[in-house]
Design a protein around this nucleic acid. Sequence first.
RNA 1: GGAUCCGUAGCGAAAUUGGUUAUCGCGCCUCCCUGUCACGGAGGAGAUUGCCGGUUCGAGUCCGGUCGGGUCCGCCA
Length: 591
Amino acid sequence: MLRTHTCGELNNSHTGQRVSLAGWVHHRRDHGGIIFIDLRDRYGLTQVKFDPSKTGIWENADKLRSEWVIKVTGSVVARPENTTNKKLETGEIEIEADELEVLNKSKTLPFELKENIEEVNEAIRLKYRFIDLRRPELQSLLRLKDKYIQHIRDYFHEKDFTEIQTPILANSSPEGARDFLVPSRLHEGKFYALPQAPQQFKQLLMVGGLDKYFQIAPCFRDEDPRMDRHYGEFYQLDMEMSFVSQEDVFEIMEPLMIGLTEKFSSKKIVNLEKDGRFRKLPWREALTRYGSDKPDLRFEMEIKPVTELVKDCGFAVFTQAVQNGGVVHALKVEGGSEFTRKEIDNLTEIAKSKDAKGLAYISIKQNEISSPIVKFLGDELTQKLIKELEAKFGDIIFFAADEWKIACLSLGAVRNECANMLGLKDNTKAAWCWIVDFPMYSYSEIEHGRIDFEHNPFSMPQGGLQALNQKDPLEILAYQYDLVLNGFEASSGAIRNHDPEIMYKAFEIAGYSKEEVDAQFGALIRAFEFGAPPHGGNAPGIDRILMVLSDLDSIRDIYAFPKDGKGKDLMMDSPSEVTEKQLKELNIKIR
RNA sequence: GGAUCCGUAGCGAAAUUGGUUAUCGCGCCUCCCUGUCACGGAGGAGAUUGCCGGUUCGAGUCCGGUCGGGUCCGCCA
């Protein structure tokens, strides 16, 4: 061993001991005679003293520079009175060094390891990630994540789940995100795909009788990144259970999420039902009342339909929307009359980004009502609306008039931004909820008039085969559920469709022939013909949940080696070109 | 694919309406200093202002293009 102790453990009780420490030169203070070195390792900082009168190694100590790696040996001595450092765990003592070994030198760092490092350009920190990782903040996040994953594993093992690794070289799947393709050398012209999720494998495990499965599963998707979405690869807590209902899945997941919240954040869990369970919000209700399928329930600010009130009013924007089968929804924002013209313009842009044509409002100021639409509505209706929304002086009411979904989503985006502006997103709170009863189908956004799966084609439709045969497809709900935390989608899951007959019918409604289903989901369908148990599960995005629980701005902070915003690894310089020989073996030509 | 913001020493920033030698802090190098802990003091090096072109007597500043980056929308369990 190069060291007898770490840089974080020595104190007054060790005085007189002869010790060896190894670490990085964190800071050097050269007083001409005496030289102090703050020696740093994962565990802390220890001050090392080189005194020219007491040692022959002073000359070498004089040459030390930041981030050199050294080993020092000497005795632990109590610091003289008034020179202790209360900010340091080891501040009562110092090492009086008599041996110094330089283990490695360091060039001058490309950026300083200082408190305000967040201000340093992220690209340069990513390129030198191995230096950034020396910061205690990043190290403690990685250790936090380790404990977090251990907690999850312990929880499922205790519940008698089995962790099973599923293949990384899998098949391209037609639904969902873009795949990462891996060319096959042994089979010319064929490709593996990295799994977007172990979805089909875990269902096949259920058919295989494994009963309770989980996995901290790597998932790969070639979609553009976001602050809360790491490019390319991320981890899901994938889990699946046999012979269960939706409620059984909830009962397994909720105590885990409560445990993670309590153990890995200081947030207070709010918005629980009286019996301590998570609130369940039907999808349609969530969209109507909060304008989102992942509503932030740390604050109320509810949206109300006012279609009936305004359908015959004098404002053509409202009446035409209603005549076209649409709705008019209203959002009261308490304190919103303070919004400036510029801020309202910005909110209008946000509404428009969700396909709204505009954003009407009634601002109730102290002595007047300020609104571009009151002259069309008339005083009487204006007062009715104000009463309906229970608006007071100081409030503002926003309106969306459009087809139902656009009205919901545009006001939902406005609701979200208003909460930001008014500081309503309280980071001391954790609001968990389930969104349930997702629709099985919706109209395709690409092909007009065509019916497509709204969410996941593997979900069991509520009402089973009978519903598929008899109901309007757009009315059919699925046993499908999302878990939401503070406005972030934390997980999604479903009770799966395990019956081949129902499966073919479900796909038929979405326009897939039996042959197409067999071609694309052959393994799964075949398996279901051999005694598949009813099963269901879900797959929380564990990185994102930890990010929200830890109040991190960026998901990159909890990856040791993250990709940048364009999907590049600046440190390894990937993706990169490969040799002609490699391409030839794989029968690939670059255009 | 679209919108928007940003590129000035190693890092972070400044530079009146376009004006002459591009400024400051940190870091780096040299020297001085025996109790500091963000040590202190003196001096020094370090920049084709991302790149290309244009307007102008004159461009870090204005215009066009391009490259790189951030965030958002689209997309995405």
